[in-house]
Design a protein around this nucleic acid. Structure first.
Ligand code: FES
Ligand code: FES
Lengths: 141, 141
DNA sequence: TCTAAACTTGACCATTTTAGTCAGGTATGT
DNA sequence: ACATACCTGACTAAAATGGTCAAGTTTAGA
């Protein structure tokens, strides 16, 4: 059960972006340098963030990205959804009315995993970008 | 962020085992058939569970496994630890006093991921096998 | 004593996912 | 014009996953 780089980077990059003023666009090159994330990889991530209306892009010299909403309205859930970082704990496909064992009944641990999924998602739903930009100072490990 | 089969199967198998009486050993073959888990794979998992003192083995005909503790004393945490299903959300290595960026400071999202890790682990710490064997009836999806 | 059931161990492997790289573009402010 | 920065799609090495396979050892029961 681990967080992938895509989700981690997406949040990192957005926090970085949000910490700078949201009038002047921030270039991916800057984020790349500051956070140590590959520029090419960031581009992939931001294309998804843009498609999901989390950031706006401004092309050309002096271009970059800006948030398309208030940091308070961007929840981790939205970010993760945008970059396909999904929480998947049950094995079965809930769409199909069929358990992971192929039977029409749920397996003996289905409810447990479902509860876990809800538990994890609640964390993401209750955290916004705003919550992450307040403590601006980097501190010692 | 997803749960791996090893962790899922370990819990499934133990719930299955715990539902049967814990005096007579339950064979992996039975669990395999009931839960639709590969026997060979189950053997790998149970060897870990045994090393971590969660189950006891009884060899020979009529052998099998029994729980080595009261279901109430077996938390999901213990099971996951035994089969190396670890929750890993931070990127850095906490042992080494160094951030994921190589610097001696934490990255801007370190605290967030650390909080997430705690949040997820609390779920596992508060669930015991006992909690999972009460509702014995399989229900419709 | 023989045999079958069941645990034990370690090596092996195909597939999928991850975490990127690379190679081209296109738009735009100066 | 040209440098900067976004945009797009293809590609890939390495790691993780989810097993399988083979060759044991132990022990109950006929
Ligand atoms: S996880 Fe849903 S039926 Fe098994
Ligand atoms: S996750 Fe710990 S420093 Fe980045």
């Amino acid at each position: 059960m681990k967080l992938t780089s895509k989700g981690r980077y997406a949040v990192m990059a957005l926090v970085d972006l949000a910490r700078f003023d949201n009038i002047n666009p921030v270039s991916l090159r800057d984020i790349s340098l500051r956070q140590g994330i590959s520029l090419d990889y960031l581009e992939q991530i931001f294309s998804k963030l843009k498609r999901n209306n989390i950031v706006k892009s401004i092309r050309g010299t002096q271009g970059g990205y800006i948030l398309s909403k208030n940091p308070n309205d961007i929840k981790l859930t939205n970010i993760f959804y945008a970059v396909d970082e999904k929480v998947k704990t049950v094995k079965c496909n809930k769409e199909i009315k069929r358990g992971c064992n192929g039977k029409s009944t749920k397996c003996i641990t289905h409810d447990l995993w479902d509860e876990l999924e809800t538990h994890i998602n609640s964390f993401f739903e209750n955290k916004s970008l705003e919550d992450l930009i307040n403590n601006k100072k980097e501190t010692r490990v």
